[in-house]
Structure formats: structure tokens, C-alpha cells
Amino acid sequence: MLQHCLYCLIMSATMTGCVSATVTAVNLGFSNGYLEEWLYSWSIAFPVGFVLLISLSPVFRRLVDRIFR
């Protein structure tokens, strides 16, 4: 269980960080306020992504197992 939580933490931090950085850059460009806006967006996206990944990854794992059986 601890391994699964750590995996979800790393994966959600990476994915939400990259996506929020990309969307912030597309919307604002790399202006003076980019870093502050990106961190704000990421601070919202990361907890949402983490909770979704923790709760949905077992469902997705079973789905993939069924597909490949």
C-alpha cells in the first residue's frame, strides 16, 4: 500500500506539474508572473490529481488486466 501511495504521489506530481506548466505557458506565455501563476495552478491540480490517481488506479489496473487476458 505504501508503494502504491508513493507511486501515485510521484506520478500525480509529475503529470499535474507538466500539464499545468504547459497550460499556463499557453495562456500567459513566459511573462514575469509565469512562475507564480504556474505554482498556483499546480497547487490546485496536484491534490485533485493525487486523489483521483489513488482512487482510480486500481480500477484502471483491473481494466487493463481484463483487456490483456
Rank of each mutant, 00 (worst) to 15 (best):
G17S: 14
F60P: 08
I10L: 15
T24W: 09
V51R: 04
C8L: 06
S55E: 14
G29L: 07
F68Q: 11
W38L: 05
F30A: 14
T24Y: 05
R62I: 09
L63T: 13
S41I: 06
L63F: 15
F68D: 13
E36N: 05
W42M: 07
C18G: 14
A45M: 11
T24G: 03
V64Q: 07
E36G: 01
F60H: 03
N27A: 15
V59I: 13
S31N: 14
T24V: 08
S55P: 07
G49L: 01
T22Y: 12
S55L: 13
A45L: 11
W42N: 11
F60T: 10
N32R: 05
S12P: 04
L52K: 01
S31H: 15
C5D: 02
H4L: 04
L2W: 03
V64D: 08
T14R: 11
I67G: 00
I67S: 00
A25P: 06
V51Q: 03
V48D: 10
L56Q: 00
L39W: 09
L63Y: 10
S43R: 15
G33K: 08
S12W: 01
R62E: 08
P47K: 10
N27W: 05
V59F: 05
V64Y: 15
I67H: 04
V48F: 08
P47N: 15
A21T: 03
T22I: 11
L35A: 11
Y40A: 11
L56T: 00
G29T: 10
L35Y: 15
E36P: 00
Y34D: 08
S57H: 11
F68I: 12
V59D: 12
S41P: 02
G29N: 09
V23C: 06
L2T: 05
S20C: 14
L9K: 01
A45K: 11
F50G: 05
N32V: 09
V26A: 11
H4Q: 14
R69S: 08
L52D: 01
T24S: 12
S20W: 08
C8M: 04
L6T: 05
L28G: 14
F50Q: 11
R62F: 07
R69E: 10
L35E: 13
R61G: 09
V48Y: 06
V26T: 13
Y40K: 08
A21P: 07
I10K: 10
A21L: 06
S43C: 14
D65N: 10
L53E: 02
L6Q: 11
M11C: 02
A13S: 14
V51C: 01
G49P: 11
F46R: 01
S12V: 03
W38M: 07
E36I: 07
P58V: 06
